[in-house]
Amino acid sequence: MPADNKTADKPEVQDAPGTADAATATESETLAAGAAVAVAKHATMRYATLRIGIFIVSLAVLWGLVAATGHIVTGNGVLYLAMGALLISGVASFFLLSRQRDAMSAQVTRRTDRLADRFEANAAMEDED
């Protein structure tokens, strides 16, 4: 007789094939969905922050290039550097931030759809009177 009588009296139950995998898959799908919601929730803020970051980096690079030539940036030179950095960051963000731009677009579309539905529901309530 085994030393542990509690386990000896109970029949051994085996999981159905794939049950553990299904539970793990469901849990991972839930986590992935939660992560997608979290990412989509702040898509506009993330895109704007990355655009500003790319602009600052391009401005710093341009400023460094000008400083490396021995020139001091003053007056209108600052404006020209800012315009150049804006142009460079715009082109770079077009290619680098397409995924974030798509997420932001989806977020804005969902929000406008909800607002339009709410507006139509309010208009329908007024018509019922």
Rank of each mutant, 00 (worst) to 15 (best):
L65Q: 02
L65F: 13
V66L: 13
A67P: 00
A67H: 05
A67M: 07
A68Q: 06
T69W: 02
T69R: 04
T69N: 04
T69C: 07
T69F: 13
T69H: 14
T69I: 04
H71T: 14
I72Q: 15
V73T: 11
V73M: 06
V73H: 04
T74A: 07
G75Q: 02
G75F: 03
G75E: 01
G75M: 11
N76S: 15
G77I: 03
V78N: 04
L79V: 06
L79M: 15
L79G: 04
Y80G: 15
Y80Q: 03
Y80V: 07
Y80A: 10
L81N: 03
L81H: 14
A82E: 05
M83V: 04
M83F: 08
A85D: 06
A85K: 15
L87G: 02
I88P: 00
I88W: 07
S89M: 06
S89R: 07
G90E: 07
G90K: 01
V91F: 07
V91Y: 00
S93V: 03
F94S: 14
F94H: 03
F95N: 08
L96V: 14
L96R: 08
L97E: 02
S98Q: 14
S98V: 11
R99K: 14
Q100W: 10
Q100D: 12
D102R: 12
D102Q: 09
D102L: 06
A103I: 04
A103K: 04
M104A: 13
A106Q: 06
A106H: 14
Q107H: 15
Q107F: 11
V108I: 15
T109N: 09
T109C: 08
R110V: 00
R110T: 07
R110Q: 01
R111D: 13
R111V: 09
R111L: 08
R111P: 02
T112H: 12
T112D: 06
D113Y: 11
R114N: 12
R114M: 06
R114L: 06
R114D: 11
L115H: 10
A116N: 15
A116I: 10
A116P: 02
D117E: 13
R118Q: 11
R118Y: 07
F119E: 12
E120W: 05
E120S: 05
A121K: 09
N122W: 01
N122M: 12
